[in-house]
Design a protein around this nucleic acid. Structure first.
Lengths: 154, 154
DNA sequence: CCGAAATAGTCAGTGCCCTGAGTAATCGGC
DNA sequence: GCCGATTACTCAGGGCACTGACTATTTCGG
């Protein structure tokens, strides 16, 4: 009786979108390397020598999750992890040659997959798609990460 | 050098969107009941007596995941699970009074949360947002679920 | 009627994602 | 110089999501 229409619930749509993407990634990009793992590789291509926490910040993963992902990438020999001699709390991360190669290979496939994934939208619609999702995600992240938490509301 | 801009990668955006939603759900709706669990309750409000597989289809969860979610809801006494006397393979699912109450309560809070979540978009933009995401998700699901798999390509 | 195929559900294994609690190292004020 | 706060990371625990292999039941063709 009082059931709700989930197609107007952004959370439900976001989950379905991610599932669809997961599926396509598995078939078109890689069964070994996942999309979050690729994001980490990509962050380290852009900025080699980052520490774990910062990589997590770049790709949007919390401290626990980034630790797991990095440990998996390390086990596969795609990156190296060394203590920062300047700050014994940090681990500095750097891709191995294998990691670099893997990133290059997956970059190509990822581009192809994105084309297929976005094929139902025109070029204009794709821009709107990106922009709207980003606005919503950024705003929600802002709610959690209050730069100036005081006197903002009320 | 060859790093890629993830803000134009729909998979990355979908993940960030879902994370943002997860966070907001936890603070504004419930710490006990998750969004997928609410989707299951909602499906059973709309169609009491569904079997497990069909509920999974309605909310977009595979057979394994739906089994876990339903077992958790059962443990909390929000739904009942009985063998279908007509077909001994099936379990028929039905909300308890507690389940119905919980659904009603969360429906209100979910609506409030969606307003906050979508606040950065105008009403028009919200419609576009829904429509574009749905088109992409539907198309990708169609790729996996070929109604007519033969002679389609090549 | 009977055996093969299809179907509903379970189970083990992998990976993502978060919180809360704990450890080790560094930093900052006095 | 020392002590308390902060910071980087780890660990335990709960939940979502998928695949592949397995069991039990039903269905359908001959």
């Amino acid at each position: 009786m009082a059931a709700v229409d989930l197609t107007t619930h952004p959370g439900h749509l976001a989950r379905r979108l991610q599932q669809a993407h997961y599926l396509l990634w598995n078939t078109m990009v890689s069964e070994e390397i996942t999309s979050p793992q690729f994001a980490v590789l990509n962050a380290l291509v852009a900025e080699p020598g980052l520490d774990q926490r910062t990589v997590g910040e770049r790709v949007g993963l919390d401290r626990s999750t980034i630790a797991e992902v990095i440990s998996r990438l390390g086990r596969r020999g795609l990156l190296d992890k060394v203590r920062d001699p300047q700050d014994g709390r940090r681990f500095l991360l750097r891709l191995t040659d294998d990691g670099l190669r893997t990133h290059r290979k997956l970059t190509v496939r990822t581009a192809r997959m994105n084309q297929v994934f976005l094929a139902p939208l025109s070029a204009d619609e794709q821009s709107v798609f990106f922009e709207l999702i980003q606005r919503v995600a950024d705003a929600a992240e802002g709610l959690r990460n209050p730069t100036e938490p005081l006197a903002a509301q009320r």
